[in-house]
Simulated assay, not measured.
Amino acid sequence: MKAENKHSKIITAATKVFAKKGFFTARISDIAKEAKVADGTIYLYFNNKYDILLSVFEEGVGKILGKTQKLLAANDDPVEMLRIYVIEHLTAMRKNKNLAEVIQIELRQTNKVIKQYRDKKFSEYTGIITTIIQFGQEKGVFRSDIHPDLSKRILFGALDEVSRVWNVTLETHYTVEEVADQVLTIFLRGIMVANN
């Protein structure tokens, strides 16, 4: 098996194990067993469990980030851009429930090093919302008295909570589109200029 395939296999296995057992309870041997590799193989690719967790996070968010940026580049309507972001995020979280679990729960509970890393990486991902809101303000679509950074946290917080409900309590009777419409309707009513 090629090195990149083993690396990817370990990341997939670790995501599943962390989501199921929790980061602190999970052992390297659990990840190795899930990946169907020897325990020592893990250390050829990663220094420790924290290193694996960072890689899970970086690769998972990196894929969502890349796809979202590509879709946004082809659009210049700030409302539609927010819709794209929301749908892409919700789709990714629903599609990979293990990754969603790791992002939502594990990265809130780990040590300061991970939290600092998460903030740095997440700021790039959530920063897209800030940029869209600023763009909408420049175009006169969104209210000028709205703080883009605070609005970003409000919108992402709503998305995070919806994803948590889907993945933790298994309330899956809403489609991605239905949830996106609800979140956006509530959010946009607060930030749109009155005549739009």
Rank of each mutant, 00 (worst) to 15 (best):
33 K>P: 03
165 V>M: 15
37 V>R: 10
169 T>V: 15
151 S>F: 01
86 V>R: 10
184 L>P: 06
43 Y>Q: 11
75 N>W: 12
105 I>W: 13
86 V>N: 11
181 D>Q: 07
126 T>Q: 10
113 V>W: 05
117 Y>C: 04
187 F>D: 08
141 V>A: 04
101 E>M: 15
42 I>P: 01
7 H>D: 03
57 F>K: 00
1 M>L: 11
71 L>I: 04
53 L>A: 15
170 L>C: 14
61 V>Q: 13
187 F>Y: 14
72 L>V: 06
53 L>V: 11
26 A>S: 14
115 K>N: 03
81 M>H: 01
177 E>L: 08
34 E>N: 09
102 V>W: 03
88 E>L: 01
75 N>R: 12
162 V>C: 02
112 K>L: 08
35 A>I: 14
21 K>P: 06
85 Y>E: 07
36 K>A: 12
80 E>F: 00
51 D>I: 06
66 G>C: 04
47 N>K: 14
168 V>L: 14
36 K>Q: 12
103 I>S: 02
31 I>H: 10
97 K>E: 14
65 L>R: 13
35 A>P: 13
10 I>Q: 05
22 G>W: 09
186 I>A: 03
100 A>K: 00
22 G>K: 05
1 M>C: 00
48 N>H: 06
183 V>F: 08
13 A>F: 09
9 K>Y: 01
135 F>V: 04
185 T>S: 08
102 V>P: 03
183 V>I: 11
140 G>L: 11
88 E>V: 02
100 A>F: 00
45 Y>I: 13
13 A>W: 00
61 V>W: 06
181 D>W: 04
165 V>A: 14
150 L>T: 11
67 K>F: 05
19 A>R: 02
178 E>A: 09
66 G>V: 07
55 S>N: 14
123 S>D: 13
111 N>A: 11
104 Q>N: 15
153 R>V: 06
121 K>S: 01
149 D>P: 06
52 I>Y: 03
68 T>P: 12
108 R>M: 12
177 E>N: 04
34 E>S: 02
147 H>M: 10
185 T>F: 09
56 V>Y: 00
129 I>V: 15
11 I>W: 07
96 N>M: 05
159 L>F: 01
126 T>S: 14
165 V>S: 13
71 L>R: 12
109 Q>M: 09
53 L>Q: 04
70 K>S: 12
64 I>S: 02
87 I>P: 03
149 D>G: 07
182 Q>P: 02
107 L>H: 02
152 K>D: 11
62 G>L: 12
2 K>D: 08
84 I>V: 13
195 N>L: 05
110 T>I: 10
146 I>R: 00
30 D>V: 04
39 D>R: 14
98 N>K: 03
172 T>Y: 08
160 D>P: 01
187 F>I: 04
172 T>F: 07
45 Y>Q: 06
187 F>E: 08
182 Q>C: 10
146 I>M: 07
8 S>I: 04
118 R>W: 02
127 G>W: 08
53 L>T: 10
154 I>F: 15
42 I>M: 01
192 M>C: 07
5 N>F: 03
156 F>P: 08
102 V>G: 01
170 L>D: 15
62 G>P: 13
184 L>W: 01
90 L>N: 06
54 L>A: 06
104 Q>S: 12
